[in-house]
Design a protein around this nucleic acid. Structure first.
Lengths: 314, 314
DNA sequence: TATTTCAATAATTTAAATATATGGAGACTC
DNA sequence: GAGTCTCCATATATTTAAATTATTGAAATA
């Protein structure tokens, strides 16, 4: 790796002299003394083995080599200025990219609204949303590919204590039925009633599916006795299946707001069962936090967080 | 004028770390100690108010701001390298421009050959030939627009002692006649014979014309008695006029070599008159001398100089 | 000729960058 | 899981570089 034969300060001085036509004026412009200017130019000339200025005449004139160097000098200094501007923009959130991770559910129904709000406030920061499994999202946060993420499942334990996990909101997984289903008339169901239903579920790899299975099991139900009509890998597909009368399902309430309002799907109430999961914000405390990420966490997330989330207090 | 928030050394270090993925390896690469690298990056981060590297993981990873800065960093360092190369080329005569001044005569008949020789040796140095009057050429040398020049006339006295004037060669101004002219049969002419001729001359502003007039006058001739058939402003035009039998003229021998060889023009010999002028090299000793100019003066000019020129001894 | 201006030089001070030495945190080994 | 290794941060000391003040010399101005 070659030594650098000049410094930016020298180039700055060169430019100033060329512009002012005088060592002294350049010195005044740069708020240094004249000898400092003289010495720096002498060093520059020594190191490059060229003569840069013609000191003979009334004003300091550039030699051919000097003109050549000045050309590069201006380009280099311009690049430097540009770099500074770009960095400033990044600091003032006028640039940069925020990478957010999310699960299927939050990524589809929650994040778009949050991102919309963020982009409204900081239109110059581009936002990238990566929808992946809980596990993969966790790893991406761990190695810095994702700035922050909201997950609804359980992280592998090794990641759990590597990352900062903040409770963010409670996501109710509602039992939904076709509107014409016999049980949709009953005001309250009991968990025993679940055995009477045909279920349309997410595939067994899905985090949401695992969460639901675990919650049902924990509440004393026998998952083996639950009838699974079909497994689909998309919430939208399940919603359509339920609306078409193909079966029941546990779905995040955030995903069925529109359908409930339109009355095309029925949300049942089970008096002796609550299927809820914690949505959690995960970040990597041992990694650099971008300004955009900070702002998102401090200003945007709390507006969507449940009242008991620590995010509200921050 | 804004302060520069970083130095080239810092950028060099940044680049090295990014490439090596490690502070230590970067330090080794740059032949400095590891703390030096750490401190410089810390300074850089402080001054730009950003975090550049994520030191958490196994290897030092760039943050978003770091990546942004690196982009500019590489561009800036590339420009620096380019600048160095350009300067080196200039130093080793692989670039640059040599500006040569000349009068009509030398510019037309002498310089092309010299420049040809120079370009053969240094094909990467471009040469610019400026043909102007002696006076204008002198001023251009004085203020540095021309590196060196060869003139055949007399400089204004103020320029004379400002510039370095080196006798270069003697240029004979030969009396030329149409081949069918009655006097072209005589072996020798006397200056009295000039009164019998019709002359085709350069215009009276021309340096060569002035020189000839002065020499004739100094030799005792009465210029008023010389018949001037026409005045033209180009040597080539005069040559054609003479060849066409329109009259006689004094022309530099270098300009009629071809015609003499072809026998299309006659050079007369005047036994009691020598019309010769000194060609002089002029340079500006108080100005920067480019390497190209040096080489031209030391290596090219002597090959064309007369044996008694100081250039031969240099 | 005297005066002013500009750049170079010398000597000193100040500041900055580097090196040496050391400590702590995480990763790899056995 | 204790020991070792590696890597980066920090503290102090040293060296190096750059700036300042003061002075000189040269050229331009009056």
């Amino acid at each position: 790796m070659p030594e650098l034969p000049f410094t930016l300060d020298q180039l700055r001085i060169l430019k100033a002299i060329a512009a002012q036509g005088s060592f002294k004026k350049a010195a005044d412009l740069l708020y240094v003394t004249q000898p400092a200017v003289s010495l720096q130019i002498q060093n520059l000339e020594k190191q490059l083995e060229i003569t840069i200025f013609d000191r003979g005449g009334r004003k300091a004139l550039l030699t051919e080599a000097g003109r050549l160097l000045l050309e590069y000098c201006e380009r280099i200094l311009n690049q430097c200025d540009e770099a500074c501007k770009a960095i400033e923009d990044l600091n003032s959130l006028k640039g940069g990219t925020l990478v957010i991770g999310a699960s299927q559910t939050t990524g589809t129904y929650l994040m778009p609204r949050m991102i919309g709000l963020f982009r409204q406030k900081y239109p110059d920061v581009s936002v990238q949303l990566q929808v992946h499994s809980t596990r993969r999202t966790g790893w991406s946060v761990a190695n810095g590919q994702i700035d922050l993420a909201i997950i609804g499942g359980q992280l592998p334990s090794d990641l759990e204590n590597l990352l900062q996990v903040i409770p963010y909101a409670t996501d109710e997984l509602a039992l939904v039925l076709p509107t014409r289903h016999p049980l949709s008339n009953k005001k309250e169901l009991l968990k025993e009633d679940l055995y009477k239903l045909n279920f349309v579920t997410l595939d067994s790899q899905s985090t949401t599916r695992k969460v639901v299975d675990k919650l049902l099991q924990d509440s004393g139900l026998d998952n083996q006795r639950l009838k699974i009509e079909m497994e689909l890998n998309s919430l939208e597909a399940i919603k359509n299946a339920v609306q078409s009368g193909l079966g029941a399902s546990f779905l995040p309430v955030v995903s069925i707001e529109r359908e409930l309002a339109a009355g095309t799907i029925h949300k049942a109430f089970i008096s002796d069962l609550e299927v809820k999961r914690e949505l959690k914000l995960i970040t990597n405390p041992s990694r650099y936090t971008s300004r955009a990420s900070e702002v998102f966490k401090k200003n945007i997330l709390p507006q969507f967080a449940s009242s008991d989330s620590p995010l509200r207090q921050m």
